[in-house]
Design a protein around this nucleic acid. Sequence first.
RNA 1: CGGGGCGUGGCGCAGUUUGGCUAGCGCGCCUGCCUUGGGAGCAGGAGGCCGGAGGUUCAAAUCCUCUCGCCCCGACCA
Length: 569
Amino acid sequence: MLMSQIYSPTLRETPAEAEIVSHQLMLRAGLLRRSATGIYSYLPLGLRVIRKIEQIIREELNAIGSQEVLLPIVQPAELWHETGRWDDYGPEMFKLKDRNGRQFSLGPTHEEIITALIRSEVRSYRQLPLSLYQIQNKYRDEIRPRFGLMRGREFIMKDMYSFHRNEEDLDKTYWDAYHAYERIFSRCGLETRAVEADSGAIGGDVTHEFMVLADAGEDLVLYCDSCSYAANAERAEGVPVDNGNIPENKMNKLAEEATPQASTIDQISEFLNVKSSEIIKTLIYLADGKPIAALVRGDHNINEIKLQKMLRCESLELADDETIFNVTGARVGFAGPVGLKIPIYADYAISTVINAVVGANKDDYHLCNVNLNRDFEVAKFGDLRATEAGDPCPRCSGTLVGARGIEVGQVFKLGTKYSRSLNATFLEENGKETPFVMGCYGIGVGRTAAAVIEKSYDEDGIIWPLSIAPYQVIVVPVSMKDEKQAEAARNIYKELEAAGIEVVLDDRDERPGVKFKDADLIGFPLRITIGSKSLEKGEMELVIRKTKEKLSIPIEDIAQKVLQLIKEA
RNA sequence: CGGGGCGUGGCGCAGUUUGGCUAGCGCGCCUGCCUUGGGAGCAGGAGGCCGGAGGUUCAAAUCCUCUCGCCCCGACCA
């Protein structure tokens, strides 16, 4: 390909719209342009990177026996009503109507479609297991799209779905996929860490997210400093603590203190001169519409996902001011467990707080020296707090370390959630109608490209690994007007192309600085520079983008050397 | 959805507070000369309903009202 022909408008200056490095460089290198918030056009070089990643995915998934399909983007609402996700997914779904007023959505994911496809065709255990995948645009009207390809509203995703007779069979495919993912990301030049995670709106119990540790990541990952435990912070387990029964003689006399205008933990801590760990935070929630109280220590934060799991409720939201007043008799900021008539759930750590400070359920008052069992009862203890860096590891005696992570893939064991609600069954050997046991497996293709840049760039631009670079080599003659250089450039270009190498010839009549800057910005892994001096010696210069290493190599050896470098990568 | 910020040639910005001549600058773009190992130089040039609508005024990029779009932070942690 000739550089003069490639539509790759590079920018000297960083567009104001881009905040993180990968987004800035994708725009500057002419890989990407924004069309609307979270919606992008991929330009030729950007598309080539995407296609390379897709190809790696295809190879690895085909290798574990999955087959590629292409499912519709426009999906009928009825299917989503069947699983209840038309409402569960809520405003995240792009919804549309056809001319007859029939409702559709732009697919945010494809569990419904694929399950509906399978249910009418796969009738026997003899046809299982079955694994299908597709690579396609997904549509989610994200609450806050940002960071270019990192979180778009339209984005390219590989999604794979597997169908099984039973859990054991699912387990095998689950780990096949898990290991295929490791190979995929590794081939893309990414170091990933599989972490335990929450399954969110997709559902299921066992799931791992593949995280690339990077500052631009939107997730917080906690991992153990001495064992292999790693989890998304929203999922990370707390370690149960139990202080046993607090001896009566350590309990001080309950007292009421006026705390005018002190309604936050910090304010109370300062006003009463107590540590935040001596305060019990009382949160009033509506669980499926019914009020409940959740207690966490003042220096802890609640994890609503954990609370929702413990309550086994469909919906969970913080109560509104009116409900709080009705339940506690006080305005927000003065709730406490003493005398509450609603069920009280508490984090394990609550059992360790002696002589605690709590809201008095009375405006502008708090209670001091409050003690569990003497002054209030807890319906159930559990792991309710948000685990943080510095907390003990739930698996060993180590300590959890925090890091930002970019989630590039996730694998789920879905179980029968979708097959049951969509009535997708097959006949078992014994003739019994059985719902499919399912798994699903996603990879964010564009996000993977973005993650690679986040981990591999320098002040001059992107540093693509050979495996997903838009082209492997760029040939840069210092001056196209020097006919000797131009000819040598054309010759080596043709030779490399003939050897099956993906090569670009920068045939533009630009000054060398411009061509070097563009080559570095776009991130071609290898550059062959042709100057008059080296040419006279019968040599060309091979420059490694990543290390900036420059090798003078006899012209006749160049192609061989390039092939060797590609092979070694 | 809440808060903050921003919309001025393709890109990055100034000008807006305090209304006033033909709306500026840098980069990019076009033409010519010149130059060729890290985004050169000189000369000439094109390109703007100042996001949109309405209003105030002799006069609006600038003031007022409404609206659209974009970016950032937050989204209930009492």
